[in-house]
Simulated scan of single mutants.
Amino acid sequence: MTQESADVNEAIAGELRLMDPEFRSSGEAARLLDPEFVEVGASGRRYTYEEMIAELPSKPGSTAAGPRYEPSAITAVRLAPHLIHLTFETVFNGNRARRSSLWRKTNEETGWRMYYHQGTPVPSDLA
């Protein structure tokens, strides 16, 4: 496996962990989010690192008994040596969204962290 493949796999694994209800509610998300993290959610709301860390354990998708994110069609492009762009779709509680994340690595110690995330709702009449 090349280093590029290993890096892409690590970013994808991080993305999947952030969708896992047990991980979302554990308070461990801080280690996978970059301190400069920003998200524009499917709702249109903008979240900072601090807001996301505080709210993630109570957000929908963070309980084992509730709905789960179902990701599909994950693709990755390395934009620079320390920057990976992931795109994919999710279904959550019957609602589809197209998603885009930037993962960056600022040092070996912290590894790959999500720097930016955006979700765009897909209307039910679009294929």
Score class of each variant (00 low, 15 high):
Met1Gly: 15
Pro71Met: 08
Ile84Trp: 00
Arg45Thr: 05
Thr48Cys: 05
Thr75Met: 09
Gly66Asp: 09
Gly44His: 02
Asp34Ser: 02
Thr87Leu: 01
Ser124Gly: 05
Thr120Cys: 12
Glu50His: 12
Leu102Ser: 00
Gly61Val: 02
Ile12Asn: 10
Glu10Asn: 08
Trp103Asp: 06
Tyr69Pro: 00
Glu70Asn: 10
Gly41Ile: 06
Glu15Asp: 14
Asp20Val: 03
Asn95Thr: 14
Thr120Met: 11
Arg104Gly: 07
Ser72Cys: 12
Pro21Lys: 11
Val38Glu: 11
Trp103Met: 01
Glu36Val: 03
Ser43Ala: 10
Leu56Arg: 02
Ala97Tyr: 05
Ala97His: 08
Asn95Gln: 14
Thr2Phe: 04
Gly41Glu: 02
Pro57Ile: 11
Arg96Ser: 06
Gly41Tyr: 04
Thr2Ile: 06
Ala29Gln: 03
Ala42Met: 06
Asp34Cys: 02
Pro60Trp: 01
Ala97Asn: 08
Pro35Met: 04
Ser58Arg: 15
Ser43Phe: 03
Glu89Leu: 10
Glu50Ser: 11
Ala13Ser: 15
Gly14Phe: 10
Ala54Leu: 13
Glu15Pro: 01
Thr87Trp: 07
Arg98Ile: 10
Ile12Val: 15
Ala30Tyr: 00
Phe92Trp: 07
Pro121Met: 01
Glu4Ala: 07
Pro71Ala: 12
Met1Leu: 12
Glu39Asn: 08
Leu83Ala: 14
Lys59Arg: 14
